[in-house]
């Protein structure tokens, strides 16, 4: 009871207004998957400035699998273009692999493969956020905020397992339109 009251007093100032939320990045662990070491280092430096202390980086999908099997990871940031397996292979394994350690982990794809076909492919395999390179720090930060503070529902259907792809929820009052309804 006392703790609940204390927490409440921390959350709200006395005039009743809600305090703004903050993100403590020091509690979050990251895995970066990219074959470009400079790009990886830049993301590491940005995360360090945000006080992230737990970052692993690997240069292949196979190594990413090994890290995820053995360690706790909260967020994956992956490049699309890699060889021999690419970022899509990684997403597929995470979302649908029988040995995936966490099918609902947030995955941010950060890539120069930014044309629509790549975005759609990543989305349809279950990417959580997509950020095109070249990127700016605000764009990256917005994606981090999105996956941490505003997690999305997941959808499980015949050919898809991943975050709900409908970003804007519109209320629909009309009749059901599917033949099966």
């Amino acid at each position: 009871m006392f703790l609940a009251k204390l927490q409440g007093s921390l959350e709200r100032p006395r005039n009743g207004a809600r305090m703004p939320e903050k993100i403590d990045f020091s509690k979050v662990s990251f895995l970066i998957v990219d074959q470009n070491k400079l790009s990886t280092q830049l993301i590491r430096d940005i995360l360090a400035m945000l006080e992230v202390s737990r970052v692993r980086s690997v240069t292949s999908v196979e190594r990413a699998r090994n890290v995820m099997r053995g360690e706790s990871v909260d967020i994956v940031i992956t490049e699309y273009y890699m060889e021999p397996e690419d970022g899509i292979d990684l997403i597929e394994w995470v979302r649908t692999g029988i040995d995936s350690p966490d099918r609902m982990i947030p995955i941010i794809m950060l890539t120069a493969n930014s044309e629509e076909e790549y975005v759609m492919r990543a989305r349809d395999r279950g990417v959580t956020e997509f950020l095109a390179k070249p990127f700016n720090v605000e764009g990256l930060y917005r994606r981090l905020v999105s996956v941490i503070a505003r997690p999305r529902a997941f959808v499980n259907i015949d050919d898809y397992f991943g975050p709900d792809r409908r970003r804007r929820q519109v209320t629909y009052d009309g009749p059901d339109r599917r033949r099966t309804d």
Binding site: E21, D24, F25
Partner: peptide, 22 residues
Amino acid sequence: QIIPPRPDLRRKAVNYTKGFDL
């Protein structure tokens, strides 16, 4: 099947006292 958003990461990192504004 709609699976509700998982709250664990938010619960772990979001607070009102420490860290960076949204």
